[in-house]
Simulated assay, not measured.
Amino acid sequence: MKKGYIHIYTGNGKGKTTAALGLALRAVCAGKKVFFGQFVKGMKYSEVKAEEYLPNFEIHQFGKNCFIYNAPTEEDIELAEKGLKICERVLNSGEYDIVVLDELNIALYYNLLSIERILEILENRAEHVEVIITGRYAPKELIDIADLVTEMNEVKHYYTKGVMAREGIEC
Rank of each mutant, 00 (worst) to 15 (best):
R125I: 00
I145F: 06
D97Y: 04
Y53S: 08
K14E: 11
K85Y: 03
I169W: 03
V99D: 10
E167L: 05
L112F: 02
V40I: 15
V28E: 12
G94H: 05
T10F: 09
L112I: 07
E95F: 06
E103P: 03
N153P: 00
A19M: 03
F36T: 10
K33N: 05
T18A: 09
A138S: 13
A126I: 00
A146E: 06
N12K: 04
I121K: 12
L79Q: 11
E51N: 07
K44C: 04
N153G: 01
N124R: 14
E103M: 02
G83H: 04
Q61S: 13
T150L: 06
A165T: 08
I118R: 04
C29I: 00
E78W: 01
E141L: 04
C66E: 07
A27S: 15
R125E: 02
V40W: 00
K156M: 03
E51K: 02
S114H: 12
D76F: 02
I77N: 04
Q61E: 10
K161D: 03
C66L: 07
D147W: 08
G168S: 04
T18N: 04
I169Q: 06
R117W: 02
R166L: 11
K41C: 12
A27V: 02
Y158F: 14
A107R: 06
L142E: 11
K2V: 00
C66S: 11
Y137I: 04
S46W: 09
A50F: 15
Y45E: 00
C87L: 14
L113E: 10
T160H: 10
N65T: 09
L108D: 09
C29R: 08
G162S: 08
N56P: 00
E58V: 14
I132V: 15
I121Y: 00
A27F: 03
I106K: 03
G162E: 13
L119I: 14
Y158E: 09
K32R: 15
A50P: 07
H128C: 03
P72I: 06
L104Q: 09
A107L: 13
K161P: 07
L25P: 03
